[in-house]
Design a protein around this nucleic acid. Structure first.
Lengths: 207, 207
DNA sequence: TAGATTGTTAATCGATTAACAATC
DNA sequence: TAGATTGTTAATCGATTAACAATC
């Protein structure tokens, strides 16, 4: 790894390439050119080639790219050849939405447990919501690759501190707050508020 | 409006400035300098000044920025001085999470109705889920500023087509699909899958 | 072989950072 | 006034696009 620094912009496009290639494969398209990919994703062919070239040349001059092979390669680059164990902290609306969402599993992300300050002994999609008191013990005794923070924003930082103290290295954060974490911990945010405000800006910007 | 084209990068930072200023105001901070803002948001003072300067100079040389005034100005730029009516289409987990989330209301975004293919006559946070059949009629007879698409991805494009046909100009899309819309319609996506794949990439990139 | 299309270098464009005069 | 800090221009950096030789 680490042949060359890949820019943030390129990384953000990788899931788009991946999703596009999955669709093409489903439609039994065997090969595709950079200009066709560009047309689908609304970027220049040049950028497609430049992006893919970052990871080595998997195209064939005069032919294009083999859809299945390229899809697999990008899956590997994205780490989708591995399995990840997730736990969800906060079983409110968002937490339960994530529990119910089956779409992640096919990419190798499996929700193993959920925690909340109040438990009702109900199972959501086969997963019982445990009490927060059990969180630390759970992490110590199970493999937890990603902790999903879906709590109120008031406790999000405390929860982050706790899971990090227990050894969790990656956080997927849905709380509307910028978490403070050591550099070794990876945080990826879903910020609905920011997205909504950008939408609001764009609604007012036109004309 | 439209004095100068504001770049996407600047627009994405506006919500961050806004949130930062709200916190400062809560803490009764009266004035702040570009370097202090930069320190909080982890960007250079230069960039802060450059960004704010896009919208006109609201600072005072030798002093800094008035927190409340700047907060209000950015709120106006973001269009937060207005009220918006939202409808949610798809009352599954994500739809209900959005129904339950009260955080948007204080920025002027109010959920007025929700629709789904199956209705249970239950109210979620005071809002009854109507049948999809009523969607078109509802939009024609009510002001709808933003349609939130929280359906399965298989029907998301159809729903988008329908609300656009009824005159909706802005869509907040939670379905994992790139919607095809006329240029006059604004779409803002929340893409959990893309976010998760970026997280996955970053987990594998280190070392 | 001729045509097509990649991989990659060079050119362009835009965004970030630095510098500093203006001024509070 | 002196010190501080903005607004803004210029310099730098990085990302996108164009061009084209390599080659399938």
């Amino acid at each position: 790894m680490k042949e060359k620094k890949i820019s943030q912009a390129v990384i953000k496009r990788l899931p788009k390439y991946y999703s596009c290639l999955r669709h093409l494969e489903e439609d039994n398209v065997a090969k595709i050119s950079s200009s066709e990919i560009g047309k689908i994703l609304d970027i220049t062919p040049s950028q497609v080639r430049q992006d893919l070239c970052n990871f080595g040349g998997f195209g064939q001059q005069g032919y294009g790219y083999d859809v299945s092979k390229l899809k697999e390669t990008i899956a590997t680059i994205l780490g989708l050849d591995k399995q990840y164990s997730l736990i969800i902290i906060g079983a409110g609306n968002i937490g339960r939405a994530l529990l119910g969402y089956t779409g992640f599993k096919k990419h190798g992300f499996e929700v193993k447990a959920a925690f909340d300050v109040k438990t009702d002994n109900l199972k959501y999609d086969g997963i019982e919501v445990r009490h927060m008191d059990e969180l630390a013990e759970y992490i110590r005794t199970h493999q937890v690759d990603i902790a999903v923070i879906a709590t109120q924003k008031t406790v999000a930082q405390d929860v982050a501190d706790e899971v990090i103290a227990c050894g969790v290295k990656s956080i997927w954060n849905f709380a509307p707050i910028d978490l403070n974490v050591p550099k070794s911990v990876i945080v990826e945010n879903i910020s609905m508020t920011e997205s909504l405000l950008v939408l609001s800006y764009r609604m007012n910007e036109l004309e």
